[in-house]
Every structure is written in structure tokens, then in C-alpha cells.
Design a binder for these strands. Structure first.
Lengths: 218, 218, 218, 218
DNA sequence: TATGAATGAGCATTCATTCAT
DNA sequence: TATGAATGAATGCTCATTCAT
């Protein structure tokens, strides 16, 4: 992974299926490798979409994305058959990263800290792309399909962290993973809307963490 | 509690400026008295808009609101010069109710409980009209203008509750009102998107409350 | 039927349902009578669509029709929810007229002449709007739905004529109504494409008539 | 009968100008000899276009043809500068076959039967490729240019048959070749649109034949 | 030369807002 | 004043054609 390693995603990793994102799987794909310029455009589009969605919301006309990417609309549509598809691609990338992050904390020595660190990292990532997570929560575009699979996976990954933390008595046992994720993403959202900076958001997260902590543990 | 009573909004409360909204204030207004039927339409529109926005989201075509209200589009536009204006009117009504609610707890004996009860009530109201608060958080429609004044007022009212709670040592002193409101509204939002029922939302709120509590106080 | 009696259709008769097209049913309709200007536009659109489709084919952009009608696109869409709907409306009007024509010959004294005259009249009508019938035959737009009902009715009406003609020995008994209609509409089509004038088309029709005549009867 | 044999078209016949299409003419052409693989592609495209047009109609995106042909779009465009050109090429092939067929009947002993058999064969060929002839009749694509020369040639070839039939008193003398072709192609068209099978179409053709026959001759 | 990626004009349709009745 | 018809800019998307690889 050299040349294509861009800000967010690289072209070949587009159809992530949640499994095996290992670095060299790419070459073995049945589809041919994608021409260099096409790959470049693919990424330009992804980057532009990310920025544009984040800046203007999901409702932004797709032309704006094409323009920002410096490609024609046709090109954009060649890479993503639908506005929704483009949107999904971005969100899925984001969620995939989150899953990776969660798994990264799996074997940490201190389960409590592992969970808390993960939540902070979650917020950090979401903050960078804040309005995207906002959009994620909206019905304007139907983000169900394959996406929910990925979301399920995220849930599972986080649940592992949560269970370990519960076992160690680090957090209350009556707080579900869904609750946690709802609070964190809600916080990210709110932070985004209210112009919170990074520290502000982390303050929110800390409150949430304090809220789920096992009182005894303090 | 006056805030939760009544159909949804009543016409009187529409052009609230934070002061007296007694029933006959309308007649005394500097602006023309507004004929009885006009007043009736005004209210019908408000009610319909509320329901429709809540049901269908902000993106719903304005015609749908007119239809639900049983008035022509022209009439709707006579009362609200803009879709945005109508939307603002509704949100402002809602916020006004919230301000009332906050003030209602002002003189409660137990400042800690007062704040917590207020937050729960906040969530309750927001849950009922969840999609509205969701929309509130969006950039799709610009809800700034006059609205921010009202929001400032809400902030002040809540801040009163917070300060009293801090003074009594009920909550941490490093949590700002903005933080609190962000967390609560973020929770409401998240709850709305994830299909949480009333109890689910209250569980979230309880976590937030636990998070802002002064540890010693438990 | 005074003011609205235009070239082709009048506004109120739009949603023909194949039954009772009697002249005064209109006033009794549940829907209100349609404002004068709206009715005028409705007809202008219908006329323009007719001309435009005939001139340019079904593929013509709908804007062209709106422009020719002298109305905004929005207006066109207010009257017909879909390009297809507009197209159907026109064709259905045409077919309805044909059905009327067929029924008109029902009780004619000479069944053979009745059928033949009807076929000539069919061709005459189709020739006036020739390219429409061409379009009618195309798959570009799906003209199935309610339309086929009407087509079935036309079939029935023509079949009455055909059966009477067969009984009198005026035409061969092994020629179906479908065959006849196919030949006539095929002729109209071909005439249209090849720049045949009215007489040219009638020459074609006469050949077809000769072809279905009972040899003995000559 | 050479016209109906072979896959569909063969590359040789493409740039027919009404003369010698013997197999090695290609090499002798004034234009560059065309490399073997290029010739192969040329034919693949023609075959694919024929099938695709017949299957999907003229509106089919040109990419579909390239795909079916197993070549890139660029290649397709190298061989045919325009969608229209490709379409014309196919129709011309078809018409050329028809001309061959007509000439084949030139010296038949019974001129009446010769004409009738030709018409039946015409219908047979058109039925096989029905959507093509349908398309032929449309204004969507302008099939005039060089094409009309070929059509003129067809006219002449059929006129020979007609004149001989007239001389023998087999058909009426007031029926023009244009009339005949219009009726036949109109019938093919109508048959195509109405789901007639081969027999159904032949029934139509027989009616037309009966219509142009000299009454006495029966 | 073959390929298929890039392009962008063009199309059907929606919806906030204005205006004639 | 109430009505709803008229308006047209804006949007997502397609597809013939061009051009870099």
C-alpha cells in the first residue's frame, strides 16, 4: 500500500466486505486492477464527497461533489452508481475504521481503560468528520442495506470490549452496547452542531464515561 | 405543569417574546388584531406543521402541511412567509415550552433533583416530538436568526438550575450548561434514530445524570 | 359543451373511463369544476402535446411540449403527473373517438359498407394525427395499464361491425378483428413514414378492404 | 437462397454498394486492407448490434452492443463513427439481402407467384428481425442519407417483379410498388407490435396479396 | 490499434414561492 | 382574504461521444 495511500480510503479497498482487508488481497481480485488514472479519480471523488458531505450535509447536490473532485458528473457516476452508493461507501469506510479500532483494543491489558480509550478514539474520528456522523443518523437517505451488516459488526466488536469491562467491574452491568454507542454518537453529533472543539467533545465523552463507570471503581 | 398540556401549541404562544402570553394579549398587540378565522387558520397550520414535520421530517413538501391543515398553500404563505419561518415558529414554540419548564423548577427545594427532573422532562418532551429535535440539529434549514435569542434564554434558565445544583454540591462544577444541553439533546437525537422507546431514552438520560453528578454526593 | 369545445379534447373529459362519455355527466362530477384558466391550460397542454408528439415522436423532451403550450413545466406536471400519463391521455382520447366512431356505424343498414366506412374513417383520423399512431406502436413508453382496457373496448366495438359484415357475407369469415386492425394501423403507420397524402392512405385502405372482401360478393 | 443463410450478416456484405461482394474484395479495396483482427471485430460488432437492436430496440445504449460484441466502446467507434452509422449499416445489410431476394425471383416462370412469394419472403425476413424493421420506421434515428439509394434500388428490384405481374394480369395495374411495400412493411410492423407469430403475419400478407390481385385472376 | 475512463449536455421530475381568481 | 394554479430553478441520473493509456 504505497501510492494509493490517501487521506481516507484508497480505491481498491472500496468494496470492503468487512472481512480480510489485509494489505495484499487486492492484487488477487478477480476484477482487473483499475487503471492508474481511474484509481486517482476514484479517490479524488471519495475525498471530495467526504469533505462536501461533511461541509454541506447529505442534501448537497451531487454536482458539487463532482466539481470539488474536479471530475465530470459522468465520472462520478461511473465510480458510484448512485448518490446513495457514494454516501454509503464513505460511511462504510468510516465504520470499518471504527471496527478496526475496536478490535485493536481487544487484547488490551486493562479492559476498562480499553473501552474508555476506544470511546475517546471513536469520538476523535467522528469529530474529524463530524457532520458525516450527523448525516449517518438521518433518514434523508436510506442507509440500510449492506450497511446494517457492517453496523452489526461494529456492535459486536464494541460488545466484546464492553463485556470484558463489565467482567472486571469497570463499568455498570446494566448499560448496553447500544446505549453506549447512542450516547457517544449523540455526543459527537451535538458537539458538531454546537461548534465544540476537540477538547469540548472529549469533555462530553468523559461525562458519558463517568456515567457508565461502576461507582465503586472510582 | 403547563408546558405539556394543550393540543400541541396554541396560537397565542406563537409570537411569544418570552413575556406574558395571557389569552387576550393578541387583541392588545400593536399589529392588526387578526380576524377570528385568520387566528383559527394560524393555529391549524401550526398544529399541522408540527405533526407533519414530526411524522415526515423537515424535507416534507410544504403542500403536505397545507393539506393536513385543511387550508390552501396561499393561506399558509400568508401566515408564514417561508417554509423556514414556519419551521422556526414551531421550534420556537417548543423551546418556549422548555423555558417554561425550566423556570418551573427554579424554586424547587432540592436543586439537584430540580435539575435532574428538568433534564428528564426535557427528554420526555423531545421524545414526543423527536423528529423535530432531530431536525433542529440539522443544517438543512438555518435555524439561527431570532431563534438564537430564544435559545439564549433557554440557556439562561437552565443555567440557573445548574448553578443552584453546583452550589449545593449536587453536580460537578466543571460541567457547563452547554455541555449538559448538548448531552441531553444528543441523547434525544440518538434515541430517536435508534428506535429507543421512552424508557430507553430515560436510561440514557440517567447515564448522563450519573456522569455529571458530584461523586461524593452519591 | 360550449367554451371548452376545442380541437381535440376538452379539459373535463380527461379521465375518461370508457363508460358513459355522455355530454352532461361532467357537471355532476365529485371533483370541483376546474378553474377557467386551469381548464384553458389543460387544453393548451393537450393540444401542444398532440402536435409535438406527432411532429417529433414520443422521445421529444417534455419541455418542448410545455414551451409549445406556452406554460411552465410545473404547470404541465400539475395537469399530468408523468410524461407517460400525458401521452396516455392523448392516445386514449384518440382511441375513445375511434370507439365512438365504430359505435356510430353499429346500426347502419349495410353492414359491409358500415365496416368499410369505419375503416376509412379510422384511417382518416389516424392520418390527421399520424405519427401518434406510430408512437402508439412503440415500446419506448409503456402504454399498457388502463389503456389496454380501452383498447379492448375498441376491439369489441369493431368486432361487432365485423361480425355483422361476416353474417351478410360481405367479408371473409376467417379474418379476425385483430387482423383487420393490425392491417389498418400498419397502413396508417407506413403511410405516415412514407409521406403518403390522404388519398395515398385511402388507396392502401382500399387494398386492405379488397383483401378481406368475400370474393363472391364482388 | 443466399440471403437467408449465414449467421446474420457477414463482414463482407457490410460495405456493399450493390455490386460484387465476393470474399476477397476486401483486400482489393482502395482503402487500407483492414487487418484480419480488425475485420473480425467489425463483424462481431455487426452481429452484436443486430441481435441487440432486435432484442432491446434502437434505444439500447451503445455500450450494450460493445459488451455483447466483446469489444471496447472505443473499438466500436473506430468501426462506426456514430450510433446512427452502425444502425444504418445493419439496416442496409438487411435491405441488401432483400434486394438479392427480389432479384432471385426475377426470372421465375410465374410472375404472379414470383411477386407473391417475394412478399412472403420479405415478411419472413422482417419477422425474424422484427424490431429492426419497426425501428426502421421511426424518426428517432434518421435513416435517410446513403440509405435512400439502397432503398431506391430495392424499389427498382421490386418494381421489376410488379411490372411482370401486371403484364400477366396477375395483379391490378393501379397499385404502385410503393403501395405494396408500404403495406407489407406496415403489416410486419403491426405484427411485431401485436405479438403475431409467423403464421399470423403470413395471414396478414395473404390479405394484402388478395387485395392487390386482379379479381378476374382468382 | 484496442480499451474503457472521462465528459457533459440532456432529461424527467420535484417543490418553494408567486400571483391571478 | 383564501385559494390553488403557475412558475422555473434545481436535482439525480443516462448515454453518445471523445480522449488518455
Amino acid at each position: 500500500m504505497t501510492a494509493t495511500k490517501g487521506p481516507l480510503v484508497d480505491a481498491n479497498e472500496h468494496n470492503l466486505n468487512g472481512t480480510d482487508t489485509s494489505s495484499d488481497a487486492r492484487e488477487a481480485s478477480a476484477t482487473r486492477p483499475m487503471r492508474a488514472d481511474a484509481a486517482r479519480n476514484h479517490e479524488k471523488i471519495l475525498v471530495a464527497a467526504e469533505e462536501t458531505f461533511a461541509l454541506e450535509g447529505v442534501l448537497v447536490p451531487i454536482d458539487a461533489i463532482a466539481e470539488r473532485a474536479g471530475v465530470g458528473i459522468g465520472t462520478l457516476y461511473r465510480h458510484f452508481p448512485t448518490k446513495e452508493a457514494l454516501y454509503e461507501a464513505i460511511v462504510m469506510t468510516r465504520v470499518t475504521q471504527l471496527i478496526d479500532t475496536a478490535r485493536h483494543f481487544d487484547h488490551s491489558a486493562d479492559p476498562g481503560q480499553a473501552l474508555f480509550e476506544f470511546l475517546r478514539e471513536f469520538a476523535r474520528q467522528a469529530a474529524e468528520k463530524r457532520d458525516l456522523f450527523e448525516a449517518l443518523n438521518q433518514a434523508g437517505i436510506d442507509v440500510k442495506s449492506q450497511f446494517s451488516d457492517l453496523l452489526g459488526e461494529l456492535m459486536k466488536a464494541v460488545d466484546v470490549l464492553r463485556e470484558r469491562a463489565v467482567k472486571r467491574g469497570a463499568i455498570k452491568d446494566d448499560v448496553s452496547t447500544t446505549d453506549i454507542l447512542a450516547l457517544i454518537s449523540g455526543s459527537c453529533n451535538a458537539a458538531g452542531h454546537n461548534g465544540f472543539d476537540h477538547d469540548g467533545l472529549q469533555r462530553l465523552i468523559d461525562i458519558v464515561i463517568a456515567g457508565i463507570r461502576e461507582p465503586a471503581e472510582r
